[in-house]
Write a protein that binds this DNA or RNA. Structure first.
Lengths: 226, 226
DNA sequence: GTATTATTAGAGTATATACTCTAGGGAGTC
DNA sequence: GACTCCCTAGAGTATATACTCTAATAATAC
């Protein structure tokens, strides 16, 4: 693998594990056993590394949230969207942790992220619309759908922070993808009141699969749906 | 005012305006026109300053969220809780911005914050319970109430981050308390499906008072309810 | 007044961090 | 062999940051 790609990969790994704030360019170089000079040959500065990683993240989520317009939406589709979004969140989890600081430091990132959020909000809203078309949820007026989508977004993007700050007793408590996906339980909680009788039971039992286990009573098991 | 209190006050102000990460102890001392030595005479380190500020925050919110058990809950009570919580969030807004980093650095803070979150979640759940007792919302089973409360908490604590990252086009865009309180609109959105017919109209029109104005079309006006 | 204690100034320090600069190796081409 | 281009090493630097140390001054107690 090319040094440039190795830098991106290792940076992401270190950022995710330690937080961007705790990872210096010298750390990254040392981790890869290359010289700082080498790193700076490939990237002008730390911001450029982060920006490029963000672009990968963006591409991934955009790909997942591409809503097919030629067919109705199924429950499986919805599950797929939820699973995918949380997978993406997991792979680039450093990003939301230091979001405000990162955006303050890099205007490109700020502006790109703003648009990214808007695209995601539109996608969520579109999903609600299509779920209503399929008779899975009751149709809602546009204005309510907007506010609901925003709430879904807030829950999704901040579920991890909740786990890391309020849930875990120890700082080093290793967070698992499985725990992260319990966020799906929270998202489905938002949908409950809007479910149609025809699908109510199905969605409720889907939701049940993501029910959080008690903190520190975590049992090791596979994610319920893949 | 005593130097010690001045340090706490100015630190909070600087943290809120610039972010804890961008405020050094030397900055604080310079801002107060005192020497670093003086600052370190009053506080052993930066963490101690932050910890003490957190304790004030905690005290404030605990005070606001004290639910009186001797009388039913009114809509005005609910409005008061929402307004108060967002006021507190505003006054100590630096805190949630760098939460993860702060908790990683100070184990006392981590453990206190964990308990603080749990108290808040209980209070929210208790509010839902009493709102049901008063016939404002439909009663819900305990398990649903818990998940709903958590969603309310996620929306409340992360509304500000949303405004600062996705909403504002410029980094320096000054956030106002008024904008922050549009978070109340989002919280009330969560309640909509559970409202009883008797109160539905009233709550919907309360919610309307917090409706967000379009970004950059912000008109200067007072917060609708005080 | 004197002893004691609380407070303050301000220079200084150890460490870290993002980044630079120069020199050179290796591979391909003519 | 010489030239070029891409890549790499590694010492080095300017700046920042959290914090220390000593000495002096103000406040208080007796």
């Amino acid at each position: 693998m090319k040094t440039r790609d190795k830098i991106l990969l290792s940076s992401l790994e270190l950022f995710n594990d330690l937080g961007e704030r705790n990872v210096t360019t010298n750390h990254i170089a040392a981790y890869l056993a290359i010289s700082p000079g080498n790193l700076y040959y490939h990237f002008r500065n730390k911001s450029d590394i982060i920006y490029e990683i963000f672009q990968e993240y963006e591409k991934l989520v955009d790909f997942y949230l591409d809503i097919p317009e030629d067919r109705p939406m199924t429950l499986d589709d919805m599950t797929f969207y939820l699973e995918s979004v949380f997978d993406g969140l997991w792979s680039y989890r450093f990003f939301h942790r230091d979001l405000e600081y990162l955006l303050d430091r890099d205007p490109r990132l700020r502006s790109d992220y703003r648009e990214f959020t808007n695209r995601c909000l539109s996608a969520i809203s579109r999903i609600f619309e299509k779920l209503a078309d399929s008779g899975i949820i009751e149709p809602q007026p546009e204005s309510l759908r907007g506010a609901m989508s925003l709430n879904v977004w807030l829950v999704i993007t901040n579920w991890m922070a909740y786990l890391k700050t309020a849930h875990a007793a120890k700082a080093s408590a290793s967070l698992s993808l499985h725990e992260l996906k319990q966020g799906i339980y929270q998202v489905l909680t938002l949908e409950i009141p809007y479910l149609t009788p025809a699908y109510r039971e199905q969605v409720m039992s889907l939701r049940e699969q993501y029910r959080p286990t008690m903190p520190n009573q975590e049992e090791k098991r596979e994610a319920p749906v893949s």
